[in-house]
Design a protein around this nucleic acid. Structure first.
Lengths: 133, 133
DNA sequence: CCTGTAGTACTACGGTTGTCGTTCATGGGT
DNA sequence: ACCCATGAACGACAACCGTAGTACTACAGG
């Protein structure tokens, strides 16, 4: 099952680029990173990519002289892992407690609230088998 | 504005203990940690506590020969910070997108779904907020 | 064949984390 | 007054991160 791999910001950034593009050469990753926000040297990016590969998070194939990198860990897995970290640490593993927290806090405007209500309705009464709380 | 302090698992664990008890001596923290799950040497815990203090996350007062530690960063702040990291990285900062994701995934049972619907109803105007003209 | 160039590999260095052992100060008991 | 137990302070070390300069290698053009 998913191991507890802690990713740093930069690592997440690199992964993000690979997730978005599917594949990319070291240089492409570098450019994307520079465009996004960070001004790192190309070698730095390569180093990070290698280390990420050594840890099994990504892989590459060689095409001509270049390395084409591709993510091995899925975005969903990482997302789930980070989310469950938060859930476990702060909500005792209770997802709906987290949802409550998010809903109670600012950040969900009325429109979204409506949309989410419908989503929940499908989820709770989809089979119309509700025990009518 | 919350600073971007990245906390590791262990650090979070120490903080958790201080949050739960309010205050604790190094030894108490160590015992709690051992009871929880990890078998670390007392000195290790002390070291970590010192480093956490150097970074301003916690503080201590001296009572007799012992140090009584207390958290300086609030649980809510750390929670918010970790949550917004996830939100930003995976949902472009859109909290309700995160909520949707959570609701769509398995982990919210029908009872909770009902409860959350009500919560959202209040939030979306079903209960005529007073600040609303 | 020789060389320039592109692009990876290697090395390095200052920080931080996790992990302790060891030393040092001190207050309490005899 | 003296010794010991208790607990903090200091130092160490391996692993990993962010950062990047330099070395090496292989392909392309002449």
């Amino acid at each position: 099952m998913g191991e507890e791999v802690q990713l740093s910001d930069l690592q997440l950034g690199l992964l993000r680029i690979l997730w978005d593009r599917g594949e990319a050469t070291a240089l492409e990753v570098h450019s994307a990173l520079v465009e996004r926000d960070r001004g790192l040297a190309p070698t730095t990016v390569s180093t990070m990519l290698s280390r990420l590969e050594k840890k099994g998070a990504i892989t590459h194939r060689t095409e001509g002289r270049q390395f084409i990198y591709r993510a091995l860990v899925g975005e969903v897995d990482v997302r789930r892992s980070m989310l469950s970290r938060v859930t476990d640490y702060f909500f005792g593993g209770d997802v709906s407690a987290l949802v409550s927290h998010l809903v109670e806090g600012r950040g969900v405007d009325p429109d979204d609230a409506l949309r989410l209500q419908q989503l929940l309705a499908e989820r709770s009464g989809g089979a119309e088998e509700h025990d009518d709380a």
